[in-house]
Structure formats: structure tokens, C-alpha cells
Write a protein that binds this DNA or RNA. Sequence first.
DNA 1: CTAGGGTTAG
Length: 625
Amino acid sequence: MRKGIEQRITSLLKDTITPKQLTQVHAFYIKTCSSSHSHKHNRFLQAKLLATLVSLPTSIDLHYARSLFHSFPLPDTFIWNTMIRAYLYAHNPQQSLTLYFQMLLHHHHHVSVDSFSLSLVFQACARLLDWENGTKIHTHVFKLGFSPDLFVQTALIEMYAKCGHLDCARKVLDSMEEPDLVSYNVLLVEYIRFGEIKMAHQLFNKMPHRDLVSWNTMIHGYASLGDVEQRQQSNEALKLFHEMQVANVVPDRVTMSSVLSACASLGALGMGKMIHEYIERNGIGVDMKLGTSLLDTYAKCGDIDNALRMFEQLNHKDVFTWSVMIMGLANHGFGEQALLCFSKMITEGIKPNDVTFLGLLSACSHSGLVDKGWVCFKSMSRVYGISPKIQHYGCMVDILGRAGLLEEARELIRTMPFEPDAIVWRALLGACKIHKNADLAQEATLNLLELEPHVDGNYVLLSNIYSQAKKWDRVVMLRRSMKCSNIQKVPGSSSIEVDNAVYEFVSGDKSHPKSLEIYEMLEEVLDRIQCAGYKPLTTSTVQDFDEQEKQNALSTHSEKLAIAYGLLTTAPGSPIRIFKNLRVCEDCHLSIKFISKVYKRKIIVRDRNRFHHFDGGSCSCRDYW
DNA sequence: CTAGGGTTAG
């Protein structure tokens, strides 16, 4: 074949990005081969064809790759490696491994494994979580007398780490003479994936340099982890974002996405808005993922209007985007809108997944849509081929229970194809509380305490049920057993963001510097709403206090303090947003309705379960919560 | 050739 044609095909391959283009080049190659110039195949060009096929941005046509591979009578190391890569990229790491072992058998054909083969096969082991083969091949590295290669070692770190052998991974890293950023970052990512945030942070501090990926990994770690100490972790994410800027590392959309999820879990709307402005000011392009983050942040910070605006602005939406919107509407109590959103999603040809249905069922639950809940639940498997998980059954139990269909809820628990978990029993127990069914409550309690004997919230819920029924002896017994098992009650707290700083109040809190003013304000508030007809709902207190004591305990609940502070510090007529760690109590719910009317304020409360929008004396939950 | 981001019930 003439040199000119070889060069022409090489340059054609360079510009090949679609499978169709590739077949065209291939056809051209075959034509020139069979033409008069040469009948011999060109090994170099064929290898290049295969390599191009494997590196196309689209998914790999394995049939095609295999036929190319088999056209070589004696594939060399490069060609073997390319085929191993083909399987790896085509999500078939098992075949990569098989091919690697076949390659070893071709030793007599002078085909030898090189550092590319090794790094690829370790990646395959990492994806398969195949520690056994991984370690076995690790010994090959020594046997073959390889000088330690950066890529091989990095792949080894990933293999050990992904298989859960974080200490082995660390040993490989520590043994490296000059680990590069990727070697560090790989381990950082795996530490985070295993929830080892402390180890990650130590490594992060130890690194000689940190690049964008290192920072992003750490920020994401703090923003996404932390069921425990959620608040601290989210604040740590924001702190790191600040440090990153001090270190002159320019953030990108990945950074923004993580920082936003920290804002979302803090409920920090002001901070979220600042980040949004930062994104716009710095020309960071909003792609689908970042857009979904923004949407989710607005929804979780109580600003459903901006969430909807964001949703409208996004040109491309996938199942995540739609699910986030549906869940947002659900949490704000807009059940019908959530269902409408779902219909639109279907019309636009987006396939729902199991999370989408959690949003829908949650919407039905928050809005008391029993029939529609059943329709959704049944359509899951019948129409969309998604089999309901225990979470979906949990939602259905909640929907039925809240609506007072306690027997139906109990029957569903009995017939569902899962062992009921604590969450299911708690949903039933909560329903028993609303609808005052002592017998069923007894059954749910026994099951719940067997599964979760150490969760404070369960005792609080039970205690509320007993005091509602005025069974004070039971309440006392419960408190005693809590004390015996050393179960601490998580105190209720409410926070409010003023001038981008978050203040947190607990019941009877006097720690705020403006405490005196806050309590004066609270007194005025209570006076004014009482004039408007508010009467304290003392039945929801746990203790067998006298009436005045009960009222006093209620009047300084954390949400009331936070609202008093909000009234003091924000402009008249502007909305007040409160974030509570537990569910809002009935008396607070009632009084906030009055406050919204008397002070002409929109008050948005995010409690443990959902949002309450108070306006003009009523709440968006229509007292169904 | 290896590294980083978005949804998950009550």
C-alpha cells in the first residue's frame, strides 16, 4: 500500500467520531487494499481501525471489534490490549480478564504483557470487585520483573480500594516513589465511597498538591455523607469551598453541584442563592446535572417558585430532573401538581424509575390522595415494569394509614413480599396516633421496639400516644425505661437564616445575644394571637403538668422562638423561613397559622417530613400531616 | 489508558 493512502486513512480515522464514519473509512480501506496497488493487508492500519472503534464516544460495537480482532492471525500486544480495553469499556470486565489470561498463554508467540495490559486488567478486577484475581495478577507484576509503572500502580490502588482493602491500597500508594495527583485522587474517592471521611481528609492534608478534582472530591464527600452530624458535615463542605478559593483553585460545575447539595441539606436559601449568582457571574455553564442541583436546592430550601422557574429554564431534562421536581412538589404539598408533572414527563417520553414513584407516592401521601396513590402504586409494575420496593409499600402504608384506613394498611403489611421494617411500623403507629386506635398501636409498638429498641424518636412517638390517651402511668414507665437503656431524646431545634448566617434555637433557648428582645417579641406575639382566637393545645405535651406549666412549656418551643426572631429581624411583609429538625407539634402548627394572619407574613416551615406554607391563617398541608 | 457532580419513603 502506498504511503500516501496510509496517511490519508490515518488522518480520516483521527476525525472519526461516529460508528457510521468508521465503517465508511473501513470500506475505503478494504477498497484500496483490494485495488491493484496491494493485496496485502496493512497490519498497522487495521490495528488503528480497532483502536479508533474502541475509543469512539459512543457505546462499543463488540461484534465489530471482535471481527476486527480475529482478522489478525497473530495479534501483537497493542492489539490484545485494545481488545481488553474494548471489553472493559463495553461493561464486560469479565471478558477483559479472560482475554488477559488468554494473552498470557500466547507467550510462545512472543506476545508479552506490558504495563498497559496490567493497568487494564486491574481496572477490570476493580469493577468486578475480584480481589482474588487482582492479588494473583499483582504477583505477576513482580514475576515479570516490571519496574513500577505509574499507571499500573494507580490501577492497583483502585483495585484494592474498590474491593474494600483500603489498607492495601494505601500501602501501594505509600510505596510509590513519585505518586501523581491521580494516584492520590483515586484513593481519596474510594475513602469517600466507603464513608471514611476522616481518612480522606488526612490524606488530603498530606498531599503535596491538590487540584480541582481533589477539592471537588472532598467537598462532595462532606456534602453527600453524614447522616450523623449532617449539619456539621455540610458546613465543613462550605468551609472547604472557601479554602479552595483561598488556595486559588478555580471551581467548576462539579464543585458547584456539591456546594449546592450542602446548601440544600442545610436549608440555607440565602447561601444557595449566592452560589447561583456566583455560577452566573463566573460563566459556569449550567448543564443538566448542575441544573438539577439548583432545582433541588431551591425546592429543599423552601423556595418552590424558584425551583419551578429553574425547571422551566432547563432545556434538557432527564429522569433525575423530573423526579427532583416531582419530589419537590410533593414535599411542598402540591400533590395534584406533582401528578400533573408526572403526566408531562410521560408525554415527553421520559421513562420513570423507582425513585420517580417514591416522589409520586409521597405526593399522594402528603395530599391525602388515597385513590390516586393506589393507581400509581399499581401502575408501577403493570404499566412501567418497575417492581415496588419496600419503600413503595411503606409509602402506601402511610397513605392508607393517614387516611384512616388502618385495617387496609395492616393488611398491606401482612401481604407485602417484604419483612416489614421499622419505618413501616412507625408509619402505622403514626397513623394510629392520628386516628386513635389503641389496639393496632399496641401491635405496631411491639414490632417497632423489637426492631429499633434504641431510637429515641420511637419512645417520643409512643409517649405522645399515651399522653394523648391520658395514660400517665404508661408515660412514666416509658421515661423510666428510656433512662435505664440510656436513650437520649434528641432536642427539637429550629433554625432561621438571617443575613446569610444561620441561627439555631432549642426549646427555652436564652443563648442568643438578643434573647431579651426575642422573648419580649414572643410575649407580644402570644398576646396578639390570643386576641385573634388562639388557644394553646396543651394535649400534645408529654408531661403531666398543670395547665399553666403546660402552656409555659409550649410557648417557648424552638419554632416559636425562631419565628419571633424572624419577625424582629426581617422586613415587614417578607417571608419567614424556618427549618426544624423534628416534626412540628400541633400547638406550634396552630399558633403559626395565627401568626401568619395577624402579622401578614408568609411563614415557610421545613420540618422533618415536608414543608408547611402558612399564609393568611391557614397552612398548605390543610392540617393533614 | 487511569480521578470528581444531580433524585430515594416517614
